[in-house]
Amino acid sequence: MRKSNRAAAGAAAWQAVQHSARPGAPGLGERAAAIPRMLVSRLRGDYADLSVPRLLVYILAVAYVASPIDLVPELFVPVLGLADDVGVAVWLATGLMGESERFLRWERRDDRVQGHVVG
């Protein structure tokens, strides 16, 4: 990964952390805990704001980071091989944190419509 790409990925991750520090915004723990609920709601068809193509890209990113097969193998170019995994992981985490915040807003709006209170 080029230095400029690493810097951009780091800046995006930092922005997500800073964004979560706003008053009234869900914290990182709350967002992370919402991800399984978001996926279940999406798979049941209740939450349509997470598109199927985006969900597939997230799944592919998880598979890429978890897979022992990389585009740039660590064996040949150790720094670049690790950097591409880190870049994908940062992109994935940043994307999921944004998606989970949108899901939490949707969930709260949906509970208000149905007359429930979300803690």
Results as ranks from 00 to 15, higher is better:
Asp49Trp: 08
Gly81His: 02
Val79Glu: 05
Ile69Tyr: 12
Gly81Val: 02
Asp84Met: 07
Val57Trp: 08
Ala66Leu: 13
Arg54Met: 15
Val62Cys: 09
Val86Arg: 00
Val65Asn: 02
Asp85Trp: 03
Val52Ala: 14
Ala61Ser: 06
Pro78Asn: 04
Leu82Pro: 00
Val52Gln: 13
Leu60Phe: 14
Leu60Arg: 13
Tyr64Trp: 01
Leu60Gln: 02
Tyr64Val: 06
Ala83Lys: 06
Arg54Val: 14
Gly87Leu: 05
Ile59Tyr: 01
Pro78Lys: 02
Asp84Thr: 12
Ser67Asp: 15
Leu71Gln: 03
Ala83Met: 13
Val62Met: 10
Asp49Ser: 14
Pro68Arg: 08
Ser51His: 05
Leu80His: 03
Ala63Cys: 10
Leu75His: 03
Val57Leu: 13
Ala61Ile: 08
Ala61Met: 11
Val86Trp: 00
Leu82Gly: 05
Asp85Met: 08
Leu56Lys: 12
Asp70His: 13
Ala61His: 06
Gly81Gln: 01
Val86Asn: 00
Pro78Arg: 02
Val57Cys: 11
Asp70Asn: 14
Phe76Ile: 15
Pro78Ser: 06
Ile69Met: 14
Glu74Pro: 01
Gly87Lys: 00
Val72Thr: 07
Ala63Met: 05
Ser51Lys: 10
Arg54Pro: 00
Val72Ser: 08
Leu75Val: 09
Pro73Thr: 08
Asp85Ser: 09
Leu56Trp: 09
Asp84Val: 07
Ala66Thr: 08
Val72Ala: 13
Ser67Trp: 05
Gly87Tyr: 01
Val57Asp: 15
Val72Arg: 12
Pro53His: 10
Pro78Gln: 04
Arg54Trp: 12
Val62Pro: 02
Glu74Met: 09
Leu55Cys: 13
Pro78Phe: 04
Ala83Val: 06
Asp84Pro: 00
Ala66His: 04
Val65Ile: 12
Arg54Gln: 14
Tyr64Ala: 11
Val65Asp: 05
Ile59Ala: 14
Ile69Gln: 14
Leu55His: 09
Asp84Gly: 07
Ala83Thr: 03
Leu82Met: 10
Leu56Cys: 09
Pro78Glu: 07
Leu82Asp: 00
Ala63Asp: 02
Pro53Glu: 09
Leu56Ala: 13
Val86Leu: 03
Ser51Gln: 02
Glu74Val: 06
Leu50Lys: 10
Ala61Trp: 02
Val62Ala: 13
Val86His: 00
Val65Ala: 04
Leu75Cys: 02
Glu74His: 01
Val65Phe: 03
Leu82Ala: 10
Leu80Met: 10
Leu80Tyr: 04
Glu74Gln: 09
Asp70Met: 07
Val77Glu: 13
Ile59Cys: 10
Leu71Gly: 03
Gly81Glu: 03
Val72Gln: 09
Leu60Met: 11
Ser51Thr: 12
Ser51Arg: 11
Pro73Lys: 08
Ser67Phe: 10
Pro68Met: 09
Ile59Arg: 12
Asp84Asn: 15
Ser67Val: 01
Glu74Lys: 06
Glu74Ala: 08
Asp70Tyr: 04
Leu60Glu: 01
Asp49Gln: 15
Pro68Tyr: 04
Pro73Tyr: 02
Leu71Met: 06
Pro53Ala: 07
Val77Pro: 00
Leu50Asp: 06
Leu56Asn: 10
Arg54Ala: 15
Val65Trp: 07
Asp49Glu: 14
Leu60Gly: 15
Ile59His: 04
Ser51Ala: 12
Arg54Lys: 11
Ala66Gly: 08
Tyr58Val: 04
Leu56Met: 11
Val62Arg: 02
